[in-house]
Design a protein around this nucleic acid. Sequence first.
DNA 1: GTCTATACAGGGATAGAC
DNA 2: GTCTATCCCTGTATAGAC
Lengths: 188, 188
Amino acid sequence: MPKSTREKLVSRAEYLVRRRGYNGFSFSDLSEDVGIRKASINYYFPHKTDLLLEMMVAYRERFVRSLGKFDEKHNTARERFKAYVAMNRQALGGGHSMCLYVSLGLAVEGLSAEVREELKVFYAQSMDWLQTVHDLGRTDRTLPSHGDPEQWANQVISSLQGAQVSARVNSRLEIFDLVSKCLMTTAT
Amino acid sequence: MPKSTREKLVSRAEYLVRRRGYNGFSFSDLSEDVGIRKASINYYFPHKTDLLLEMMVAYRERFVRSLGKFDEKHNTARERFKAYVAMNRQALGGGHSMCLYVSLGLAVEGLSAEVREELKVFYAQSMDWLQTVHDLGRTDRTLPSHGDPEQWANQVISSLQGAQVSARVNSRLEIFDLVSKCLMTTAT
DNA sequence: GTCTATACAGGGATAGAC
DNA sequence: GTCTATCCCTGTATAGAC
């Protein structure tokens, strides 16, 4: 399926943000990547923020859709959780990029209220899903027993986010694996 | 002790970077803060990178000095670790800022090789100290027993870094506390 | 839809006076 | 050391032709 120019813009921009941050990319960079004049981008996205917001929503929807697929494919809490970790690891892109929402988490100051709201929505949806995994884990006993679901979910998200940063800073992907392995074997 | 202009520049710049990221602040902002014309900044720091590097080194040295003090003040591994967590929490600055090296870690792409090297040094020194705490904890049994020191240290750093991002994104400092509490009670 | 041309602001950096 | 003045570049955004 051939991508429309709009889709190309969103997907390339996403890549750039995940690599260099929101302030670290420009319409110039993007225009080179997509093969269109930079002024033409404004036809689709009058303001840079418009592009950001559309990109965030698309990313989140894709993300949530994946979570749904994990539930379909895997029956145990352990397998579902492993799939979640694997997705996070994939977001690392071999050490060159990171999860969009981690990247934006830094720049949070100086982003519009709308964008900040989107960030919270993403976080909340991840939390929700993780808590259902936690519940299942309590039943099927495929994950180490944990106390508070909310606490566990926060711990998971924070660890994986931080592990992405650590791995990238040190150019050592193993760090991510080391940290995520802890989450599978640890009881709270 | 009255701060020199140079010191003021470094400390205000540090604050701005921790709040908005490296690309998110300019000499203009800084000049307003310090009360000096922006061109005058170039007298001290010909290039923006010079300022960044000096700020990083100063931050790291201060950081390491604090670790030394923790060792002097506290005898148990638990107390030392608690002091470390408290320092990280303080870096959050009530939710408006974050640890300098977390902020820069997110923007790592697009920073100079020199700066990236500094980031690794900081990480390495934190790792070293945490591993000595781990060793002590194995002896004095004031921390839950853990397996590999390196794994534990990585887990600690990643969790605390990620917790800073999570707390800030959601404007909820409790998230940091929730996550850090896990680290005190968890056995790997 | 995509282009060229252009406006306008801001950022980093330099020159030279005081 | 700090200032004013200025340069050049980049970034966002608009206008209007094709």
